[in-house]
Amino acid sequence: MTEESEAIRAVRLRHPWRVLAAIVLVLLLALFVLDAANRPAFGWAAFAQYLFDPRIMQAALNTLALTVYSMVAGVLLGVLLAIMRLSPNPVVKSVAWLYLWVFRGTPVYVQLVFWGLLATIYATIDIGIPFTAPWIQFETRDTIDVFWLAVIGLALNEAAYMAEIVRAGIMSVDQGQNEAATALGMSWTKTMRRVVLPQAMRIIIPPTGNEVISMLKTTSLVAAVPYSFDLYGRARDISAATFDPIPLLLVASAWYLAFTSVLMVGQYFLEKRFSRGIGMERQTRRGSDAGRSGAVTTATGPVPGVTTTAGASSAAGSGSVETDGNEPENRPVDPGQTPTGKESG
């Protein structure tokens, strides 16, 4: 026993199996790469030739455009649907429920085929009073081209999923916030706009990033419309002429991978940004945790009401059911996290 405590110098715990497993895996990977590099079927020469082909580059842009337009429209409509679903008005609520039922209940591929058949089903778009002569009449085929049909199809489908994400976000905001705003005389709409949505945003944004990545890949289904100037469609068309599909599949994959990589980096920063300072609020959401975390949080964080069991428990329920299904690792906030930075106002 020494007077001053001595720094511990112990032999580190070794993990021989980890090292071995890593070596074996690296060897196997190297073997696969080596083999792939020399395998004629992959057609690396063709891959290099087509990777930056102007048609492919244009198609990559089209894919990006499809993604951006569909996402923007999908998010806007999704927010609207989520608010409608939570509205006290039963009519509005039912409309939203019906929408979600249809658009979440059918495959996006089938929906895209239907949008492609729009002109067949509805040859003209009439504006006017039903059963009377229309004031304005459009030929469907001339009015909406396939690109926009694809966007409509993707956006309407996406809106149904975004609505669930937004709804989970809204319901994760403490009921006490609602009450405080109501007690101050704010209307339901104003409470939503000024108090609930800004707080829900922080929970909505990370899974939305996930949806963007998912959408980028879903655009490859627009062949169903049929729109064929997206990345995958173009690659397939070229390969149909060259009778050599594999290099072009690799080309398309390389571009998708490049885009999703950029998006994943973006999402990493978004998640970091939006998880700041809200760890405790998430924690108090859960009714069961409320008592425990309440004691922890009184000194530092806003402790939303513990009194609201109904709202809180259903929020937790919808959160886990609706959004967890997408990507569990994508939880916006670690519940155990403590607030570190400034509030992101």
Binding site: D174, Q177, A180, E281, P302, P304, G305, G345
Partner: peptide, 13 residues
């Protein structure tokens, strides 16, 4: 009518 809550319910944002 002003109301003050047990859990403060300040708007955190």
């Amino acid at each position: 009518i002003g109301m003050v809550f047990q859990r403060f319910n300040l708007f955190p944002h």
